[in-house]
Write a protein that binds this DNA or RNA. Structure first.
Length: 1125
RNA sequence: GCCGGAGUGGCGGAAUGGUAGACGCACUCGACUCAAAAUCGAGUAUUCGCAAGGAUGUGGAGGUUCGAGUCCUCUCUCCGGCACCA
């Protein structure tokens, strides 16, 4: 049985409340954190010292925390780390005279509250408000300088009114690529009315077709809206969700776990499947490029920037058109157009359009179909996790390489993704690992077209141990007249030599002549090539065939070299072939041979009539949750009158048979042949009775108030026509039909007739936005928070909600957090999300502090929304967060993450109670570098407590007599500390800032022990001022204790005087050949020559330089002197 | 696999190319105390040496430099992100 060791609680010295009598007779209290913190917090509140006004002549500074999600688990000591840092920062800025905005709020919509509501049936609104209260209390006890009058919570209607408002702006916008910004959708409508969509250069759904202004105008509102939906920045669409039939609900990715039988729900372990559901999307892809571009000007950690860049995944390449033997064109996307001559096959994604289109021409359709269904049956996990590539050749179809007109086979394989690029790739197995693997598996040819141009190469020379020494010696003695590096690998008898490419020849000669019995291996990049000793020659440089030498040929040789085998056995050598993926010089590429990859990409693309294009990995963001506890999406699905779309089908001449119309004799328009078809078949025919042909053109949609019974979708109707008539509109057609319909059968034999068909009955609801005046669209009360069972949100079960036609999806968690920082600027505004004045004053966040886990979520979405608002002129800056700092996690004492599950959570309330908020703050800042993760240490925190107390007790020793003279040493320490602390807070080096203050306190204490030295009030106050951001309670109380008016937190920040930093003496380290041999003290500012003379005569130095010629003396002013001899 | 970041005492960590281990924890010894806690003082990388002092030392192997934890090359390990993105 494990014995749990209880952490020992340290006794703290505050126990007694007696006072200490100072030299001066003034009463100095003991440090009692509970009393101090409680009193001073009350005073702050009463005097409202952290309230921030917008109208200020002072310069603004906006310090923001990522607001918390108030969860039932409450805070643990890891959460406030970022808040403490930003608070320290904000406090310093405030003391430096800035008008600091430092607010706090709550990201209060989300899953856990919903989960709780489902389980308990309690109203999540009430529950959430309670949690917020608890959180606030916890935060307040730590002593943050938040202006609570600006608090926001995303679940409150006065807040989400504006989340909904922003949504509507996004919904009513489109992205103009020409102007590279979002514009109102009304602008687009105007363009459509004027010139259709041919000139529109917009970011839109790929299924949109081109149309003219006339066509646009001819469409019904529903049709127009459907077109517009392809352009809106918030649009309706479908996507696959994780559907759990047992639970009757949609699950988020983290609610799913893998099991042996496939994915199951975390709760209950029920199977989870994919289901296509209606969703709302945000067209973040429109901003992909700007989201990358504008990262450049941001003061964020390169780490986060990198993650975002990676996530957006920009890649520049070419779109190249291959021709398929059927005549169809096949576009591929590649970043390596330079390898076009190396294409030996092309691959389509299983979902590629051409696959279905060419169905009839595919000779092995059965095989293809089997493969397609196999792929479909595979779960996404299977498809990704099994690295084994599968595919099938499409027989009967070839693709023609536009570069050299070569015919190459066409394959379908699921390693090609339908959603990226064009869903088709040109395969260059010689220079792409995936193609390489696939080609090897299916025996496809490999054609080499790029040669390495590395200026450096590595060679591993296999030597005996004895030879290694010899070899090294030769190199050391510069027996080889060129630059290289030597290293032994794994302490075995290998030597790795690096050298410039042009020196290869010389090197080979040397090895062959001087070292006997060597064999060797060449490594290019991280790929290996074996070269037999005999075959080493000049053409090693340019004969690329060696890259494809079969391993089997060399295997016996390598096995013979046991150590080499050990070294290389586990790596790429197990491969039979090697493929070279880097840029290089082209070969086997007709007129392009000899060009560099970079140049060739451009010219080859041009040569084959391709296009240079940019692609992004990022996908549009799903902006809908099938949940209750989120902002309602302010849209109404309005039912409208149905519309018919009617399609003309053809002309017929009927041959009346005795028992009625059964067959029709017809002649096709283009192929002059007769054939019999059945009634209802749709064909293109000419009128044959008089050998005349006429066309019926139908381009209109028909609106019906009430659709006649006869118009069933897909039903064929026949209208008689006379040979000499023309029918131009559906209306004419319909009228004729109506006339004929009653005695249809009787008339039909006499005349020709035209067939037409109801193609589409568009009844779909029209989506209209809720009027801005009616916002907020408040969440209705529901009887049950349980899932609706259909996968839809519980809102779908609310009758009033659905009859009003309101959208039943709610917004995702990231909606409210994508703009909250703007609301803080003017949180009570009822007319706008924030007033223009407030927005122009506060502009953007100067310092944003939070966890890096939001790199690809919140931080991306917030930037996206902000850019959108900027495009429409609602905010003055392109980017919301100028500087960003990410705190490291605080792990539990056991090294794991703090979590209820592990039972290792440390509650800040306990720490505040035992040690005080000031100590908690100092400790969390002192633990280590702010951005690094550290484990919480129950033992180490005492050090911070000691420091806080020591500063307090230093107060007893302050000389309050007006005659007291300040000590030069103490003055210097304090000014040093001011300098260091100011700089370090700026650079978020809180741990070293505290260390500097500790050094300062140690210095003062030591100095005070000397006779005649005193700590004067002014200097002591400076010390507590720089400590104030870290220990705000204690320092403010001390401030008042020493008779200062107002709060320390509104007093100006001290500045250091550079003159006071200078010591009269300096310590110079004396080195001989870089080794420290002595330390000497000189007057500050002494000349180099004098110092040098002293150093050379020093008794500690003499033995080291005796009898040696002094070659050089290096002097680093004020620091060291190095004697080289 | 690819892209980032990091490896320094018993622990958290500090060091514009210039005395490696600041500061803190822990530990050891001492002072105070009847005693303990708290507090204060001294010490604390490894190794040789009684000492003075010397040698070694920042994951490993090399290099550049008067001088490298820091810069360069290779390599190992750990952490984070992405993951068949052509």
């Amino acid at each position: 049985m494990a014995i749990k060791k209880k952490p020992q609680k340290r006794a703290l010295s505050h126990a007694s409340k007696k006072t200490v009598t100072q030299k001066t007779g003034m009463k100095f209290p003991e440090y009692d954190h509970k009393k101090i913190e409680k009193t001073i917090q009350k005073e702050w509140l009463a005097k409202n010292i952290y309230k921030t006004e917008t109208a200020s002549k002072k310069k603004k500074y906006y310090v923001l925390d990522m607001f918390p999600y108030p969860s039932g688990a409450g805070l643990h000591v890891g959460h406030p780390r970022g808040y403490i840092a930003s608070d320290v920062f904000a406090r310093m800025k405030r003391m430096q005279g800035f008008n600091v905005l430092h607010p706090m709020g709550f990201d209060s919509f989300g899953l856990p509250a919903e989960q709780y509501a489902i389980q308990t049936g309690k109203n999540p609104n009430i529950f959430t408000e309670q949690l917020i209260k608890t959180y606030k209390k916890q935060l307040e006890s730590i002593g943050f300088s938040y202006d609570w009058s600006r608090e926001v919570a995303t679940h409150r209607p006065d807040y989400y009114e504006w989340t909904q408002w922003i949504f509507l702006q996004i919904y009513n916008s489109w992205y103009d690529k020409t102007k590279n910004k979002a514009r109102p959708i009304d602008d687009l409508v105007k363009i459509f009315e004027k010139s259709g969509n041919e000139k529109v250069h917009a970011v839109c759904n790929s299924n949109s077709v081109s149309f003219s202004a006339k066509e646009w105008k001819s469409w019904s509102e529903i049709e127009q809206q459907k077109i517009l939906m392809n352009y809106r920045l918030a649009y309706e669409g479908y996507s696959e969700v994780n559907w759990c039939p047992e639970l009757g609900t949609v699950l988020a990715n983290d609610e799913i776990v893998d099991s042996s039988t496939g994915p199951v729900s975390e709760r209950g372990g029920y199977p989870v499947e994919k289901k296509s559901m209606r969703q709302w999307f945000m067209r973040i892809t429109a901003y992909a490029d700007r989201l990358i571009q504008d990262l450049e000007g941001l003061d964020w950690s390169s780490h986060i920037k990198e993650i975002q860049k990676n996530w957006i995944g920009k890649s520049e390449g070419s779109e190249i058109e291959f021709t398929v033997s059927t005549g169809d064109s096949l576009k591929v996307f590649t970043t390596r157009a330079d390898t076009l001559f190396g294409v030996t096959y092309v691959v389509l994604a299983p979902e590629h359009d051409l696959v279905q289109k060419l169905k009839l021409q595919i000779k092995n359709w059965n095989e293809v179909e089997t493969y397609l269904s196999e792929v479909k049956a595979k779960s996404e996990e299977d498809r990704v996790s099994s690295k084994e590539k599968t595919g099938v050749e499409i027989k009967g179809i070839k693709a023609i390489n536009p570069a050299n007109s070569e015919e190459v086979p066409v394959w379908i394989a699921d390693y090609v993704l339908a959603g990226y690029g064009t869903g088709a790739v040109m395969a260059v197995p010689a220079h792409d690992e995936r193609d390489f693997e696939f080609a090897n598996k299916y025996g496809l040819p490999i054609k080499q077209v790029i040669t390495s141009e590395d200026s450096f190469r590595s060679i591993v020379v296999v030597l005996t141990l004895k030879d290694v020494d010899l070899f090294k010696k030769q190199l050391k003695e510069k027996a080889i007249p060129f630059e290289f590096a030597v290293s032994t690998i794994s302490k075995r008898e290998h030597i790795q030599v690096q050298f410039k490419k042009e020196l290869l020849k010389d090197f080979i000669t040397l090895v062959q002549n001087q070292i006997t019995g060597t064999n060797w291996v060449e490594i290019v990049g991280n790929k290996n090539i074996i070269v037999q000793k005999d075959s080493v020659s000049e053409d090693l440089l340019d004969d690329a065939d060696i890259w494809f030498k079969k391993f089997s040929e060399w295997e016996p040789f390598i096995r013979g070299q046991k150590s080499l085998w050990d070294m290389l056995g586990q790596n790429q050598f197990l491969r039979e072939f090697v493929c070279y993926q880097n840029d290089g010089i082209l070969k086997n590429s007709a007129q392009f041979s000899g060009k560099s990859s970079v140049e060739a990409r451009k010219v080859i693309t041009e040569f084959v009539g391709g296009k240079l294009v940019t692609k992004y990995k990022i996908r549009d963001a799903i902006f809908a949750r099938q949940r209750y506890w989120g902002e309602p999406i302010p849209l109404i699905h309005k039912k409208v009158e149905p519309k018919l779309e009617i399609k003309f089908s053809g002309e017929f001449r009927y041959k009346l048979l005795k028992d009625g119309v059964k067959t029709i004799e017809v002649r096709a328009l283009d192929k002059k042949e007769r054939k019999n078809v059945n009634v209802g078949d749709i064909l293109k025919f000419t009128h044959v009775e008089k050998q005349e042909s006429f066309l019926v053109q139908v381009k209109e949609l028909w609106n019906f108030k009430n659709i006649p019974e006869i118009f069933k979708k897909g039903k064929h109707l026949f209208t008689d026509i006379y040979p000499d008539q023309e029918i131009n509109t559906i209306e004419e057609l319909y009228n004729r039909y109506k006339k004929v319909a009653p005695n249809y059968d009787k008339r039909i034999d006499k005349y020709g007739c035209v067939a037409w068909r109801v193609e589409k009955i568009s009844e779909g609801p029209l989506i209209i936005p809720v009027s801005e005046k009616k916002l907020p669209l408040e969440l209705p009360n529901v009887k049950s928070y349980a899932p609706s069972g259909t996968g839809e949100s519980p809102l779908a079960t609310v009758k009033a909600w659905t009859t009003a036609g309101y959208e039943t999806n709610t917004m995702p968690g990231w909606a409210g957090s994508s703009w909250y920082f703007l609301r803080y600027m003017d949180p009570k505004n009822k007319k706008a999300f924030a007033d223009k004045k407030a927005l122009t004053y506060w502009k953007d966040v100067d310092m944003y502090v939070g966890g890096q886990e939001h790199a690809t979520g919140h931080l991306l979405y917030a930037r996206f929304w902000h850019k959108f608002l900027y495009d429409l002129g609602y905010v003055p800056t392109k980017e919301p967060f100028k500087s960003l700092r990410n705190q490291g996690l605080i792990m539990a004492t056991d090294g794991r993450k703090m979590s209820k599950r592990w039972g290792n959570v440390i509650n800040p309330d306990d720490i505040v109670a035992t040690y005080g908020a000031d100590t908690l703050r100092v400790y969390e800042m002192f633990m280590g570098p702010f951005e690094a993760s550290q484990p919480w240490s129950t033992e180490s925190i005492i050090g911070s407590r000691r420091f806080v107390e020591r500063v307090w007790r230093l107060g007893e020793k302050v000389a309050t007599q007006s005659t007291a003279k300040s000590s030069e040493g103490i003055e210097r320490s304090i000014h040093k500390a001011i300098k260091k602390v100011t700089e370090d807070i700026h650079s978020f080096g809180f741990n070293t800032a505290i260390s500097a203050m500790m050094i300062c306190v140690n210095d003062i204490e030591n100095t005070l022990q000397k006779e005649g030295e005193a700590l004067v009030v002014r200097e002591y106050l400076m010390l507590i001022q720089i400590l104030a951001p870290f220990a705000p309670h204690m320092s403010d109380v001390l401030w008042k204790q020493f008779g200062q008016k107002g709060s320390i937190h509104t007093a100006p920040w001290p500045t250091h005087n550079p003159k006071k930093l200078i010591d009269q003496e300096m310590t110079i380290v004396v080195q001989v050949n870089g080794k420290v041999r002595a330390e000497l003290r000189f007057d500050t500012g002494m000349q180099k020559e004098l110092i040098e003379a002293h150093a050379l005569r020093d008794e500690k130095i003499l033995p080291w330089i005796e009898g040696k010629e002094i070659k050089r003396v290096i002097y680093v002013p004020g620091k060291l002197i190095n004697i080289v001899c």
